[in-house]
Structures are given as C-alpha cells and as structure tokens.
Amino acid sequence: MTYSTVLPIWNATRQRFLKTAKALPAQDLALQLGQSSIGSLLHHTAEAEYMFAEWFFGKKMPDEGIAKPSITNHEELVELLVASNDHLLEAMHALTEEQWHTSVESPMGPSTPVEAIGRLIYHTGMHAGQISLIQKNGQSPTE
C-alpha cells in the first residue's frame, strides 16, 4: 500500500470532516456534553494528526509547536485542521513502499503506518459523530 493508494481513502474521510468543521456555526463550538466540547474535539483531532505524523511517519512537530487557539475561535480551529492535515500528508508522501509496511514503536505500541492511517480514519469518524451528537444534545457551558 502506497501513498497513492491510501490518499483517496484518507481524503474521503478528512475532507468531509473539514467541510463539517467549516460549516459549524461559531456559537456551536462551546456546546458540550460532559467534558467534551465541539471546539475541543476539533483541536484534539488536529493534535492527533500531528502526533501520528511524528510517531508513525517520522515528521517532527513544527518548531513553533502546535497552535493552541481558543476552542471557540472558529477561524483558527479550521486553520489548525488544515495545517495538521497538510503536515500529515507531507509525512505520508515521504514514505517508501517498504516503510508503509514496517512496524514502528510508538507511545501507543507498535503499528505500521498503514495501520496508523486506519486508526486516524476511525478517530476522525468517531469525533465527527460526537460533534453531531453534541450539536443535537449539548449544552452551552453557561446553561
């Protein structure tokens, strides 16, 4: 499995997630269920992409670190999601065919980059579902 094989699968999930994030009303970012807010899920999704790029694809975090926008700043959260995806895509593109199938040790345990992308696809889809649930049933922190 190579970049050209994985890319359309990743893009199908990730582009839909970004489209959803861009369409969110800014006031929905603060909605939450329990400890999870929509804004925090968007930020967390970007953080996971940066971490996976480093852990499984060998692309270091940006020198300036990961942006930490307010979880209620819609524009900055969308920019962070775009940047984290670009960072991951660069990391994926740099792998050789052999590296895609080579197990890598990580804080999550051993995994190949192919398996890691599978986890990220699942992760992104799971948080998309949570965002939808929070929009339907969440409360503003002031309620």
Rank of each mutant, 00 (worst) to 15 (best):
W55R: 13
L88D: 02
L80G: 04
K60P: 02
T96I: 02
V82R: 11
F57N: 09
V82P: 02
S70L: 07
N73K: 12
E79G: 12
I66F: 01
A46I: 01
E97G: 00
T102C: 05
A91L: 08
E79S: 15
L89A: 10
M51D: 14
A91I: 05
A48K: 07
K59V: 02
E75V: 06
T72C: 05
A46W: 04
E79P: 00
H93P: 02
M92F: 09
T96L: 12
L89S: 03
E75G: 06
A83I: 01
W55C: 11
N85L: 01
M61C: 03
H101M: 10
E54Q: 14
A83R: 11
H93K: 15
H74F: 08
K68T: 14
E47G: 11
G58I: 11
S84C: 09
E76Q: 15
Y50D: 00
L77H: 07
A91Y: 03
L95R: 10
Q99K: 07
W55Q: 15
P69E: 07
A48S: 11
I71M: 14
E64W: 06
Y50H: 01
S84Y: 01
V78W: 14
G58S: 13
A48Q: 07
I71Q: 14
Y50R: 01
G58N: 13
A48Y: 01
G58K: 13
Y50I: 00
M61E: 09
K59W: 01
G65S: 10
D63P: 11
L80W: 10
M92H: 03
T72Y: 04
T96C: 12
E79L: 13
E75C: 02
Y50P: 00
L95P: 10
V82G: 02
E64T: 15
V78C: 15
H87K: 08
L81D: 05
L81E: 04
P62D: 12
E76F: 08
A91N: 10
I66K: 05
E54G: 11
T102K: 15
N73V: 02
E97T: 02
A83Y: 08
F57R: 11
K60C: 05
D86M: 05
S84R: 04
Y50M: 01
E90C: 07
L81K: 02
N85K: 07
W100T: 03
E90D: 13
K68F: 03
E64L: 09
P62R: 12
E79Y: 06
E75K: 14
E54W: 12
Y50E: 00
T102M: 08
F52P: 04
T96E: 10
A94Y: 01
I71K: 15
A53V: 03
D86C: 02
F57G: 11
E98W: 00
A67V: 03
E47M: 13
E75L: 05
A67G: 09
E47V: 11
P69N: 09
A83D: 13
F52I: 08
T102R: 13
K68S: 11
A53K: 07
A53L: 06
